[in-house]
């Protein structure tokens, strides 16, 4: 069995599992560009994303507004560029929290076994049965809009995917005698897990987390679209799609299509990178055993 099969994918994305390296390089390059744009956003944006230029409202591309402006006359390109910050920061936070928590839970369950494993695995399954978006909506309704509630909810919702993977990998890795050798040599469980087990299963987890990044981006965009994510006025791709709906009806679809495209392309890019890593890790595992 290769570790590749353990990485969870949403059905539609399976087709992206390609061996074509050029696609990987294009996607990796694109992901890097997006990250760079997000970091440099305030300097790159041609206009204030919240400045209303009502004379330009609902116009197509022009010299002043390269991608046109939305119904309130705000520059689409600038909003797109600044929106990349929330678009990346939100999923990044979700991935960091869910990975940390998932690895801790999964490794603890797999390594210790027994009642702890039963407890953690059952609660993970319970979490899996509950849709992440629903949990996020619940959190938002309890704690109000803003980025914190959806990120907390999605972090929790994504934890079981990581913890299940980490548990499976831990169980498999535990069979390898080098870990038994460390136990015989008197190393503590903590030292073995942190210094040897986690670094060895890390690459597979990282691949899953990269794939999760894309999913979290979609989920957060969906929440923003529903008006449950970022506070109003903050440029955000999901919210832009929502704002752009009215523009679409009036024959200027660009302010809605541009953020849609940005979401899709970013998600695809991160997925391809994640899949490629997963494949590479799997190949290395095969070569090792």
């Amino acid at each position: 069995m290769s570790s590749l099969t353990l990485v969870r994918r949403r059905p539609g994305f399976r087709a992206l599992r390609v061996s074509r390296p050029w696609l990987f390089y294009i996607c990796a390059g694109f992901a890097a560009v997006i990250v760079l744009v997000a970091v440099l956003a305030p300097w790159l944006a041609p206009a204030d994303p919240n400045a209303s230029d009502l004379s330009a409202a609902l116009t197509g591309p022009s010299c002043a507004h390269l991608l046109g402006a939305d119904g309130s006359g705000r520059d689409t390109l600038s909003r797109l560029i600044l929106g990349s910050r929330t678009a990346l920061l939100g999923p990044a936070a979700v991935v960091v929290f869910s990975t940390t928590l998932g690895v801790a839970v999964g490794v603890a369950a797999g390594w210790r076994g027994g009642w702890l494993d039963s407890l953690l695995s059952r609660s993970s399954e319970l979490m899996l049965a509950f849709p992440g978006l629903l949990l996020a909506i619940l959190f938002v309704s309890l704690y109000g809009t803003g980025l914190v509630a959806p990120i907390a909810a999605l972090s929790l919702a994504y934890t079981p995917y990581v913890s299940r993977l980490a548990r499976g990998l831990t169980l498999a890795e535990k069979q390898r005698p080098y870990l038994a050798a460390y136990r015989v040599q008197g190393f503590s469980n903590w030292a073995i897990c942190v210094r040897h087990l986690i670094p060895n299963i890390g690459p597979v987890i990282l691949a899953q987390s990269t794939v999760n990044f894309g999913y979290a981006l979609i989920d957060l965009a969906a929440l923003s679209y529903l008006g449950l994510g970022v506070p109003p006025l903050t440029p955000d791709w999901g919210a832009m799609v929502n704002d752009g709906q009215s523009a679409m009806l009036q024959g200027q679809p660009l302010s809605a299509i541009a953020p849609c495209l940005a979401i899709v392309v970013t998600v695809v890019a991160f997925n391809v990178v994640g899949e490629h890593w997963a494949d590479r890790v799997a190949n290395r595992e095969d070569a090792r055993s």
Binding site: Y178, A181, V184, G186, S188, H196, R288
Partner: peptide, 26 residues
Amino acid sequence: RRAERLARARQVQMVFQDPFLSLDPR
């Protein structure tokens, strides 16, 4: 517990069958 663990380790050590799996690959 740590002292106990180390003392036990100094009593007996083990060499495993598969040399390809008994060392941390990293």
